[in-house]
């Protein structure tokens, strides 16, 4: 068990800024990439909502770092589902626009690679994109992904396998960033 993480967690649960900052710095990029792989135009807002939920319920959380990661992305998944449902009720938000990016010189290559990878993931079917993001970006076990997606583990493995196969094919083609899974309902 990661002792440092436990200390962060206890500190954050007490509301201390240092503990909160450590947690945020560690997981904010992952949460943000998860949302950018599905709804890039709402990624920032959704990530902020997730962190507010985490902070509000942090005192009731019991578990280690893996458990915290699973809990964190469970909240993120639910916020994503809520956002999809909200957009279905309001179709004017169906067209998503990628956020404006200001790339600095030292991180230009990484950022462009990351943007390209997320653009390819958005071309996957919704359930495949969800499974790949939770497995690769969030680094969750298949069982945890299955619980989050409310599917069987075998189904999750199939989704990840097919998603990666399709990504390998898409890597050979030029990117025409038209998000395919933006409005697809998450299972």
């Amino acid at each position: 068990m990661n002792v440092g993480f436990d200390e962060w967690l206890e500190s954050a649960a007490r509301g201390e800024p240092e503990g909160l900052a450590n947690l945020w710095r560690r997981y904010q990029p992952l949460v943000l990439r998860y949302f950018r792989g599905r709804l890039p135009d709402a990624a920032e807002d959704l990530a902020s909502t997730v962190w507010i939920d985490v902070a509000s319920n942090l005192s009731s959380f019991r578990g280690d770092e893996d458990g915290f990661r699973g809990w964190l992305f469970t909240i993120a998944h639910r916020r994503l589902v809520d956002e999809h449902r909200r957009r279905e009720r309001r179709p004017e938000h169906s067209v998503s626009q990628p956020p404006e990016r200001s790339s600095s010189s030292d991180t230009h290559d990484d950022a462009t690679s990351l943007d390209a990878a997320l653009a390819l993931i958005r071309r996957l079917p919704a359930d495949q994109a969800e499974a790949v993001l939770l497995r690769v970006v969030a680094d969750l076990d298949v069982g945890v992904v299955a619980e989050i997606m409310q599917r069987r583990e075998g189904s999750v493995r199939v989704l990840v396998h097919r998603g990666l196969e399709k990504l390998s094919v898409l890597c050979q083609k030029p990117v025409t960033d038209e998000p395919r899974s933006t409005m697809n309902e998450v299972s």
Partner: peptide, 24 residues
């Protein structure tokens, strides 16, 4: 449009890359 990753490994490495300044 960002350039496409040349391979699946490159794509996965990009997804697992360290946090950028913009993300933080």
């Amino acid at each position: 449009q960002p350039p496409s990753p040349e391979s699946l490994d490159g794509l996965l490495n990009a997804l697992r890359s360290p946090a950028t300044a913009e993300e933080l």
